[in-house]
Amino acid sequence: MADIETRRLTIEDAAACAYLREEALLSAPDYFAVTYEEEVVEGDVMSLIQQRLLWRECVTIGGFYNGVLAGTAMLLKKPVRKMQHKADIETMYVAEDFRRSGIGKSVMNAILYQAKIWDIEQLQLSVIKDNVVAKSFYQSFGFETYGIEKAALKYKGKYWDEEHMVLFLTS
């Protein structure tokens, strides 16, 4: 039986996190706002990951499958006082070999737990409109669409619409 562990990533996890981020950008380039070239080739991905892992207003959750980092998501608090009841979920990704293993669900549950610790009232995220699998996953947790931004992303003459989703954590 598989052993699934979900926890906050630390600076010691930076190499595994950078590896997974590179995989995400290469295997699903249409689903991220940043390109592989600008984050990995033109930048220092290891430094970037290390900085993100140290941000005060951010928690990166990792899902491990038999000790291997298989999925991540980042919860980012809004820095402005009047928006501190909200947070964004960003850069969620589960490695292809680990999809349907429960990693994504474990990571999302850990994100929801952290949001409650921070007294977050609403979680927001954006997903490419055509990414039916991701939208279905988010909907299974209760996220609802509140708007569509047409041509939100553009790269090499191609446009992508983003669907903005929200989950209210208070009744």
Results as ranks from 00 to 15, higher is better:
82 K>P: 03
70 A>D: 01
102 G>P: 03
134 A>S: 14
62 G>M: 05
88 D>K: 13
41 V>S: 11
114 Q>S: 12
88 D>L: 15
82 K>F: 05
50 Q>E: 12
67 G>L: 01
114 Q>D: 00
46 M>Y: 06
108 M>K: 07
15 A>R: 15
120 I>N: 02
137 F>C: 08
29 P>C: 10
113 Y>I: 04
105 K>A: 00
33 A>P: 14
145 T>E: 15
16 A>P: 03
164 H>M: 08
21 R>K: 08
41 V>G: 09
36 Y>A: 01
95 A>E: 09
32 F>S: 05
168 F>L: 11
43 G>L: 08
124 Q>F: 13
11 I>Q: 05
82 K>T: 09
161 D>R: 13
124 Q>R: 15
77 K>L: 15
154 K>P: 09
144 E>P: 07
112 L>C: 01
78 K>M: 15
132 V>W: 09
160 W>D: 02
69 L>T: 02
97 D>N: 03
142 G>N: 07
125 L>F: 11
76 L>I: 12
25 L>K: 03
91 T>A: 15
168 F>T: 10
37 E>M: 07
158 K>N: 00
171 S>Y: 01
127 V>S: 08
146 Y>L: 00
109 N>W: 06
48 L>T: 12
54 L>E: 14
8 R>D: 03
154 K>M: 12
133 V>T: 12
56 R>E: 14
86 K>C: 11
93 Y>Q: 05
132 V>Y: 14
109 N>R: 13
96 E>P: 04
151 A>E: 13
74 M>F: 05
78 K>C: 14
59 V>C: 13
33 A>D: 08
131 N>H: 06
119 D>V: 05
55 W>A: 14
2 A>D: 04
88 D>H: 14
96 E>Y: 02
27 S>C: 09
171 S>M: 01
120 I>Q: 02
171 S>A: 09
14 A>F: 00
22 E>T: 14
134 A>Q: 08
77 K>S: 13
150 K>Q: 13
158 K>S: 02
13 D>Q: 08
142 G>I: 09
65 Y>L: 03
124 Q>L: 15
17 C>L: 08
94 V>E: 06
47 S>D: 15
92 M>Q: 07
52 R>M: 10
165 M>Y: 03
62 G>R: 06
45 V>Y: 02
52 R>L: 09
27 S>E: 14
46 M>I: 10
33 A>F: 10
151 A>N: 15
101 S>I: 02
138 Y>G: 09
161 D>W: 14
143 F>H: 08
58 C>S: 15
163 E>M: 15
104 G>L: 04
63 G>R: 04
170 T>R: 11
9 L>V: 03
58 C>H: 13
124 Q>T: 13
14 A>S: 12
25 L>S: 05
78 K>H: 14
166 V>F: 05
169 L>V: 07
61 I>C: 07
73 A>N: 07
163 E>S: 14
100 R>V: 00
128 I>P: 11
68 V>L: 04
63 G>F: 02
